[in-house]
Structures are given as C-alpha cells and as structure tokens.
C-alpha cells in the first residue's frame, strides 16, 4: 500500500528505549549488553529484551569474543529503515503540496466567481 519497512523494523525502532540502545551502538561501534546497561536508566534485563527485538529486525548483529557477546549495528538495515522513514515524510510533503494546490485553486475560483466587495 505504501513504501515502508516491514513490521519488525517498525516495531523495533518505534520504542524510544530501543532507539537509545541503537544510538549507543551506532556511536560506540560495538558493545556488550552490560556496557549498554550502564549507559541507560533501565535494567540489564530490559537492555537484553531490546537487543533481542533489534536483532530480530536485523538492525543489530552479534559476535562472541571470549566470554563476552558483542553487539553491533547492521548499517545496511539501518540505512534501509532511515530511507523508508524519510520516504514517508516525503510522501506527506507531497500530499500537503497537493492539498495546498487544490485549496488555493478552489479559493481562486470561488473568488473570481463571486468577487468580494471592497470595504
């Protein structure tokens, strides 16, 4: 029906806490869940839940280093999400432009059909 990312992607980035986790990963490059949990005001458990959702949406990947699991952003997927969002914003800009054109044309027409008396 429209240009948009799939539901997983939407759901993953719809939550402000997850956006925060994603932000931290973008800046840090790679980070463990415990490092992330130290940067945010929510629990380690919540961070893990967010990472699962982000991973399912393909936005985040992981690798093991020793005993640690390190997470990093999948930039291709993030880029895809961003482009989809920008596209939706642009769609609305186009629609608003059309509304403007239609309304202004209707108003011009109405005025020429019934000219206002100057006061």
């Amino acid at each position: 029906m429209r240009a948009e990312p799939d539901d997983d992607l939407w759901a993953a980035i719809a939550d402000p806490s997850r956006r925060r986790v994603l932000d931290l990963l973008v800046h840090r490059g790679e980070a463990s869940a415990s490092w992330l949990a130290r940067q945010v005001p929510f629990t380690r458990q919540a961070v893990s839940k967010h990472l699962v959702v982000l991973e399912q949406a393909g936005l985040v990947g992981r690798r093991k280093e020793g005993r640690e699991v390190l997470y990093r952003v999948n930039t291709d997927r993030l880029d895809q999400a961003t482009r989809a969002m920008v596209e939706i914003a642009r769609q609305w800009d186009r629609r608003l432009d059309t509304i403007k054109r239609l309304a202004e044309a209707a108003y011009t027409e109405a005025r020429s059909a019934a000219p206002e008396c100057p006061t």
Partner: peptide, 19 residues
C-alpha cells in the same frame, strides 16, 4: 498533519515509562 502509529510491542514495564 501528524501520522503516528504502530505500537506493536507493548513494553509495559516501569523502566519504559521512566525512560
């Protein structure tokens, strides 16, 4: 115009609210 939507995964924990 404001288009908003899709709270597909409700995170009903207090952490979220606080955050």
């Amino acid at each position: 115009v404001v288009e908003s939507g899709l709270d597909l995964l409700p995170w009903a924990d207090v952490d979220k609210q606080q955050y």
